[in-house]
Structure formats: structure tokens, C-alpha cells
Amino acid sequence: MNRTLILGGSLSALMVIAALMSFVWTPFDHGAMNIPEKLQIPNGTHWFGTDHFGRDMFSMIMVGARTSIAVACVAVGIGIGLGVPLGLWAAARQGGWVDEVIMRGNDLIFAFPSLVIAILITAVFGAGAVNAIIAIGIFNIPVFARVTRGGALPLWAREFILAARVSGKGAARISVEHILPNIANLLIVQATIQFSLGILAEAALSYVGLGAQPPTPSWGRMLADAQTLVSIAPHMALMPGFAIILTVLGLNLLGDGLRDALDPRLRVSRV
């Protein structure tokens, strides 16, 4: 049995469950300040300790998972929703001007340092989860377009596509009926990778204050809060950090496990 898949799936499932559970139950109210109990190290009452306002870190991390997952989810959705059709279109018109324009556009987006543009967007249009989602999502579009086109091109040269064309099917129909099912594995694996990158990007943006705004808890901002206190309360940095690492690790392992389980020869771009 595929151990990578099980480990990755369990870690990812754990985070999703924590996020969903936070809607109905957290050990404490994640926003409730309790100054007398501030900066407690992890203990029986506050499993992950408390922050400088005495808030329960465990509850904050559970609610923070919500933000991370939501932002990454929508950003990946944007990437798939726009990138896959563009990639299919480019592949169907290989070598034509449509292909050229789509691929040059991709190159152009890749030429922008993604975080810099995310900063620019959030700086100009205001910080917040929605702008963070857009900023991260934009950079998922060329990734999915490229992977889709890369997977579709060799298929277009296959004889079963020629047979479909001989049967009078058009490019759009062939893309949906024949190309998409054959690159679905590739896209699933790429989606898990982009999901993990989305979580890292969201954390980075909220760390510099450009992601979700207070009072919405987010892992990145918890780390920003921890920075000045890291020498006296290291757990404030360690706990959210572990949450991020385990989630990203889980998603990456899930992606690798899926790739091995679905098709060992699958090519995925990981950058």
C-alpha cells in the first residue's frame, strides 16, 4: 500500500477537520483576551499556550486553518477555472496565434515576481483576504494553463484524437471528451501542489500585514505577532509554524502519493 498517500491524506484531512470543527467548537473563544493568562507555555488547559493577549493559541490555529484553506481553495479554483480552459484552447490551436498569445501571456505573468505583484495589488487595492486570493489566484492561472497544454499536446498527436476528428468532432468537444479525462490525474496532482503553495503564500502575505485583516485569525499574522516576542515566548512562533509545515507537508505528500497511485509517469511542474 502507498504509505506516502496515507500519511499525506491523513495530515491534510486533519487540517480540514480542524478547520471545519472550528465552526462548531474550539476549546476557547479564539478572540477572547485574557491578559492575566498571557504568554503561557503549552499546558493542560491551553494545549498550545497563550499569546501576548492571553488568547488560546490552539483555538486560534483551528480558526486560522479556515482562512488558510479558504484562501488556497479559491485561489486554486481561479487557477483551474481559467488556466485549464486556456491550456486546452492553446493546445487545440497548437502553433496558431491563439496558442502564441496564451503562452506569451503566461510567460509574462511568470516574469513578474509573484509575491511582489501580490504586494502591489494588496497595497494599491487595500489589504484583505479577497485581494490576497486574487493575487495568489492570478499566478495559478499560468501554472494550470502550462500543465494542461503540456499534457494535452502529446495527446493531440495520438491517433485516437485523429479518429475522433474523422468522426466529425470539433476541437472543443474533443478537448472535453478525450483530452480532459486523460489529463485529469495530472491536474489533480498539480492542484494539491498549488494548494500547498497557496497556503505558504497566504501565510507570507498575512505575515507582512497584507492578508486577512484582524479580527480574522490567520497563521501568518500569528507569526508576525510572535516575531518581537520570539525570545521570551518561542511557542508563539513554533505552534503556527508547525501548523503551516504540517499542512504543506501533508498536501505535498498527498500529491506525490496520488501521482504514484494514479500514474508513475505523470509529469508535474513543481516550482
Partner: peptide, 17 residues
Amino acid sequence: RRKMQVVFQDPYGSFNP
């Protein structure tokens, strides 16, 4: 088109798996 059909070379590549 319906008056014409084709059989290709590659027995492995000519069907959607």
C-alpha cells in the same frame, strides 16, 4: 465525412484509454 473512415497504424494509440 460519414462516407469515409480510417484505420490507423498504432494499435495502442488509436483508442482513448
